[in-house]
Amino acid sequence: MAVHLITGAGSGIGAVVARRLRERGDEVVLLARDAGRARQLAELFPGAQTLVGDLSNPGRLSWALSKQSLPERIDALVHVAGVVDLGSVADLPPALWEQQLAVNLVGPAELTRLLLPLLRVSRGRVVFVNSGAGLHAHAGWSAYAASKHGLKALADSLRAEEAPNGIRVTSVYPGRTATPMQEKVHQQEGQEYDPSRFIAPESVAATVLLALDLLADAHLTDLTVRPTG
């Protein structure tokens, strides 16, 4: 039975990935930002293990995980958690830059570093759910896009570094997806939110599972998913 550690499982893409893995009998370990969120995740996914670690404070992740019992093995680390705040370079304050870089880039880098010993033993997989903004930046998206461009660089470097250890690294680049984050984006853009116009979280989750389930003779490095409409 495979063991998957997932961030961002509370809603959207991460919740669908966690549910799909649980339904087929895999074990999931869910990272929560605080104890209250961990209790919510435990209610959403009965029987799942939860860990508490705040991606917005990467420097404390090592200490937080050292106080908890990690699983004996991890076959896959799936990074889904993320935050977004739009704004022009002229207007965006440092705090919003720092938060997005921490949660979207530095936190995943540190969590991956801490779990690499377990992933090396299992010759595991790391999946980064990135964004179309990780490939192309647009006006008003500078901080978020910078964090996601950095996430692509992290994945590319990790893939090259850990190939000798049998670790496979995949980046998934979804277009706009019908999630609570997308609803927040529309509020910031001052637009009406119509989820039917966007990719369903289930479609992005299917690409994550494709990367996780690929046979050992192949390696999916980058997957781009776009709405059909």
Rank of each mutant, 00 (worst) to 15 (best):
A160H: 12
F45C: 11
K67M: 14
Q182P: 08
V169R: 08
L116Q: 05
K184Y: 14
A206K: 05
P46G: 11
L70H: 03
A15W: 10
D213T: 11
M1T: 12
A42S: 15
D222T: 04
V16R: 09
D54W: 09
A9F: 09
R60L: 13
A153G: 14
I13K: 01
L151P: 02
G166A: 02
T170P: 07
A15F: 11
H149V: 10
T177D: 10
R197Q: 14
D26H: 08
N104K: 02
T7S: 01
T50M: 10
G229D: 08
N57W: 05
W63I: 11
G229V: 10
R197G: 12
Q40L: 15
S196N: 12
D54H: 01
T170N: 07
S56N: 00
L86Q: 05
D75R: 08
H186S: 14
G140R: 08
G14Y: 00
G12R: 04
E72L: 14
R159P: 06
E202W: 06
Q187C: 14
A15T: 12
A95S: 03
R123V: 02
A137E: 10
D91Q: 06
D213S: 07
I199C: 07
A155Y: 06
F45K: 03
T221R: 05
P117L: 05
S62G: 13
R168I: 05
L212V: 08
A90H: 06
V127P: 00
P117V: 10
G36A: 13
L209W: 02
R33H: 09
D85C: 15
F128H: 05
L55W: 09
P93T: 09
V89L: 09
G87Y: 05
P227R: 04
P201F: 07
A206P: 10
D91K: 09
P174E: 07
T207K: 05
A211I: 01
R33M: 06
R168P: 00
P227F: 09
A163D: 11
S171V: 06
R125L: 02
I199Q: 00
P58W: 02
V208R: 00
H219N: 02
E192G: 08
L114N: 07
L212M: 07
Y144E: 08
R60A: 13
R123P: 11
S66Q: 05
P108C: 10
R24T: 03
L41I: 14
G12A: 11
L86C: 11
T112N: 03
V172W: 04
A160N: 13
D213K: 06
T50E: 12
D156T: 04
S203T: 12
H149K: 12
P174W: 01
E98D: 06
Q68K: 01
G166H: 06
Q49I: 13
R39K: 15
L70T: 03
T224M: 09
S147C: 03
A109Q: 07
L55I: 12
G47E: 08
G87T: 07
G166R: 10
E72N: 14
A133I: 01
D75S: 11
L158D: 01
D85Q: 15
A205H: 02
P227Y: 01
K184Q: 14
V89K: 06
V17E: 04
A15Q: 15
Q182H: 14
T179E: 01
I13V: 02
I167C: 00
P94L: 01
L151W: 11
L96R: 04
A35Y: 07
A133V: 05
G59A: 02
A15I: 12
L30P: 10
E183I: 13
R226L: 04
W141A: 12
L154G: 10
S122V: 08
A160E: 14
P117S: 02
F45D: 09
